[in-house]
Simulated assay, not measured.
Amino acid sequence: MQEEIQKVLNRMCDPKEDEAYHFADKLGMMADEETKDHLISLVKGDNWEIAYLACRALSKTQWNEESLDAVFEAIFDKKNKSIQGAFTQILEEFDLAERFVDIFRVYLFGSFKASTLAKDYLDSVEFEITPRTIRKAEKHWNHYLHNPEDEGSLALKKSEVEPMFQELKELFS
C-alpha cells in the first residue's frame, strides 16, 4: 500500500501533472497516519502550490481538526501573505463548524481575498458557538480595534462585526 501511496504522492507533486487535483483527492482518500504527517509537512513547506494540493488531500482524510491546524498555520504565516487567499479558499473543503474564531481572525487580519472569503464562511457556515467562543472572538476584535490596518476598513468591519456580536450574545441571554 505504501508503494501505491508514494506513486500517487509523486503524481500530485509533479509540476507537469495536469491531473494534480485528482491525485490530491485520491491521496486523501487512501491516506494513513504516516501520509497525513507527510502532507502536513508539505503544507508547512516553501512550495505553495504543493502546499495547496496537500491541503486539498488533507481535506479528504479523517483528520479534520489536525489538518485544519496546519492550514490555519499556513494562512497566518507571514511568508504566505500574498497567497493567503488560496489557503483560505481551500477551507471550503473542510468542516469548519468548530472554527469560528479562526475564521473570524482571517476575516479581521487576512488579505483582501482571504478576508472576503472568510466573511462568506462567517455568513454561510453553521458554527458551534459558546459564550467562550464569543469571548475569544471579542479578544481578537479588540486587538483589531486597537491596531487597524486602515481607517476605511475599520469603519466597514465595525458596521459588520458589532451587529454580529450583538446577535451572538442574544443567543445566550
Rank of each mutant, 00 (worst) to 15 (best):
Q2A: 04
Q2Y: 11
E4I: 13
I5L: 02
I5M: 00
V8N: 02
N10E: 12
R11S: 04
M12K: 04
K16F: 15
E17T: 08
D18K: 14
D18C: 09
E19N: 12
A20L: 04
A20C: 07
Y21S: 11
A24S: 15
M29A: 10
M30P: 11
M30A: 05
M30N: 09
E33S: 09
E33D: 09
D37L: 08
H38E: 11
H38T: 15
I40G: 00
I40E: 02
V43D: 06
K44V: 05
E49I: 10
I50W: 10
L53A: 07
R56I: 09
A57F: 10
L58A: 09
K60N: 15
T61W: 05
W63N: 14
N64R: 03
E66Y: 02
S67K: 05
D69P: 01
V71R: 06
F72A: 04
A74D: 05
I75R: 06
K79E: 12
G85F: 07
A86E: 08
F87V: 06
E92F: 03
E93S: 07
F94H: 07
D95N: 13
L96I: 06
L96N: 05
E98H: 14
E98L: 08
R99C: 06
R99D: 15
F100Y: 14
F100Q: 02
V101Q: 04
I103F: 03
F104L: 06
R105F: 01
R105Q: 07
Y107N: 03
T116S: 13
T116Q: 12
L117D: 05
K119L: 06
Y121N: 11
Y121T: 10
L122A: 01
L122N: 01
S124R: 10
V125H: 00
V125R: 01
T130W: 13
T130C: 14
T130R: 09
T130I: 13
T130M: 10
T133S: 12
A137V: 00
E138W: 02
W141D: 01
W141G: 02
W141K: 03
N142T: 05
H146K: 15
P148E: 08
E149I: 08
E151I: 12
G152S: 06
G152H: 08
S153M: 08
S153V: 07
A155K: 13
K157S: 03
K157E: 03
K157I: 04
S159F: 03
S159E: 11
S159M: 07
S159G: 09
E160S: 05
V161Q: 01
E162T: 11
E162V: 11
E162F: 00
E167S: 10
F172D: 05
F172C: 06
S173T: 13
